[in-house]
């Protein structure tokens, strides 16, 4: 657990401007389950796509929809939100609160023109290193299929004029 170099976020910079497009995915994960799951994937030397930038928060209950908007605004092609399975929340109910919020927010995103194919939600426990690696690979593949997020989408920041 101490080998920070295996952390998935060491993969930032994988797609410099000159290189062909590769999905840029922002993952908001909770400290106690999914982040630990990602860590396990790393220490277990599991291979997975380097397209995800992980942002660790105490709990999925702390993930404000504004984080998701900000990620799309700043150039993410997709966003993944992941935390503890129901019943496993370190703070008892943070993930239940988050689940309800996402249930509504994802509808609003779709309705205002962000394709549902760019928003992912998952439960990954600290023991599920393999699930994390498989999830990232699957998400990366799906986003690759969907292509880059439209730079003219209203959610996306455009160059200042």
């Amino acid at each position: 657990m101490t080998q920070t170099s295996t952390k998935p976020d060491a993969a930032t910079g994988a797609d410099a401007a000159a290189q062909p497009w590769s999905p840029r995915i922002v993952a908001f994960v909770c400290n106690w389950c999914t982040y630990a799951g990602a860590d396990l994937a790393g220490t277990s030397r599991l291979q997975y796509a380097p397209n995800v930038r992980i942002i660790k928060l105490p709990c999925t209950g702390r993930i404000d929809p504004l984080f998701i908007l900000k990620a799309f605004e700043q150039g993410a092609d997709a966003v993944l939100v992941s935390g503890c399975h129901p019943g496993d929340c370190h703070y008892t109910a943070g993930n239940y609160h988050a689940r309800r919020r996402w249930g509504l927010f994802r509808r609003l995103m779709e309705f205002t023109g962000i394709d549902a194919k760019r928003l992912f939600f998952s439960w990954v426990s600290a023991a599920e290193g393999q699930k994390f690696a498989d999830l990232i690979n699957a998400v990366t593949d799906e986003v690759r299929q969907a292509g880059p997020f439209d730079p003219t989408n209203p959610a996306r920041k455009r160059p200042w004029t």
């Binding site: 129901p86 239940y96 249930g103």
Partner: peptide, 16 residues
């Protein structure tokens, strides 16, 4: 409040 409370059986069909 609706967002601010929860139910164990809330839909999670969209969560992997």
């Amino acid at each position: 409040p609706v967002v601010g409370s929860w139910n164990k059986d809330d839909d999670e069909g969209f969560i992997r």
